[in-house]
Simulated scan of single mutants.
Amino acid sequence: MSSKGFFSEYDKSIKNRIVEEGYDLYFSRPCGYVLAKFFHKLKFTPTNISVLGMLIGVTGGVLLYWQDVLLYTSIGFVLVTFAGLMDSADGQAARIYDQRSEMGKYLDFFNDMLVFISCYLFGLLYFTDTYTLAGILALGLTSGYVHSIKSNLYEYYKGEFLHFSLTDSKHRNPPVDHIKENFDRTSSLLRKVTYPVLIDYVKRQNKIKFRSDETTRIFEEAREQDPQKFKEIYERNSRKMLAGWAWVCGSNVMRNGILVSSLFGRIDIYVIANIASYGLYLLVGKKQNQVDRRILNEIEDWDLTSLERTSAAEVQ
């Protein structure tokens, strides 16, 4: 089979080129596509690929403990990077072979969380003598919290973009009540463990997102009234914001920051920089609010119930 024939399903395997980062488009997705095809030949399901990638990534994270041994940190670098490719491959396999599932979507972020916890935990334990165990615990928890907030919000705005650009609404998280009513947490231990993490993830996302529920309702009404016109308005105004969220909050930036700093034996510097980046995160959020207001201004003459209700409340 020619390379062209082999990659004939590549476009089907990715979400949308607009929301894909350059790192993903030119590295993660092509490699993930090859891995998806390879593991499909071995009869692996997307969930199998995801779990295997998590185990590889956690192992790589453990190796970051030995930051004074370049061989170990180099192997850790390779394993965590490969886990990132596997994380791409599972979703691509699901799209290529129509094996998408709600559990697969949730398993992705759960596995990512375990890999990053492993990297932070073992990478920082190397510096116990420098910062003391209490200091390491404080740094790790603070950086992990900032990491989770940034990652959560980036995924939220990617999901919103895919939804309002009429690409794929499946990447939006459903309401918490919907998850509680529909998520099957009785069939396996994995589901039982994933459920509380998922509930916390969605609750936190709803709490920290910069976009108000009222703004979302207005956008939804505009999308329903004239899908194509609102798609054009939303894409034109929000496209550049995706790059801002990616540079400040993207998993690729955070993963590579951890790995490169570990190669130099100074993951602590990255952790401190990550905590400091919370200020940048707030700036991006403020810019996002400005973009949302610009969208609202463009549709202010539309006949929308929510928009009228909001205007009336502002007058009062």
Rank of each mutant, 00 (worst) to 15 (best):
H147P: 01
S148M: 12
S148E: 11
I149M: 11
K150E: 08
S151H: 12
S151E: 13
N152P: 07
N152K: 13
N152F: 07
L153M: 14
Y154K: 13
E155R: 08
L162M: 15
F164D: 00
F164P: 00
F164H: 08
S165T: 15
S165L: 06
T167I: 11
D168H: 02
D168P: 02
S169H: 09
H171S: 12
H171E: 15
R172S: 06
R172A: 09
N173P: 02
N173C: 14
N173M: 13
P174N: 11
V176T: 10
V176Y: 05
D177I: 09
D177Y: 04
I179H: 04
I179A: 04
E181K: 14
N182M: 07
N182W: 13
D184Y: 08
D184A: 09
D184I: 07
R185V: 00
R185C: 04
R185E: 05
T186R: 08
S188G: 03
L189W: 06
L190I: 08
L190R: 03
L190H: 02
R191L: 01
T194R: 00
T194V: 15
Y195F: 14
V197S: 04
I199E: 04
D200W: 12
Y201S: 02
Y201I: 10
Y201M: 10
Y201H: 15
V202A: 01
R204C: 09
R204T: 14
Q205R: 12
N206P: 05
K207M: 08
I208P: 00
I208A: 00
R211V: 14
R211W: 05
R211I: 11
D213T: 05
T215K: 07
T215A: 10
R217F: 03
E221K: 02
A222E: 05
A222N: 01
R223S: 11
R223F: 07
E224P: 00
Q225A: 06
D226W: 04
P227S: 03
Q228W: 03
K229R: 13
K229H: 12
F230P: 00
E232G: 03
I233C: 12
I233S: 07
Y234S: 04
E235D: 06
E235P: 00
E235I: 13
R236N: 15
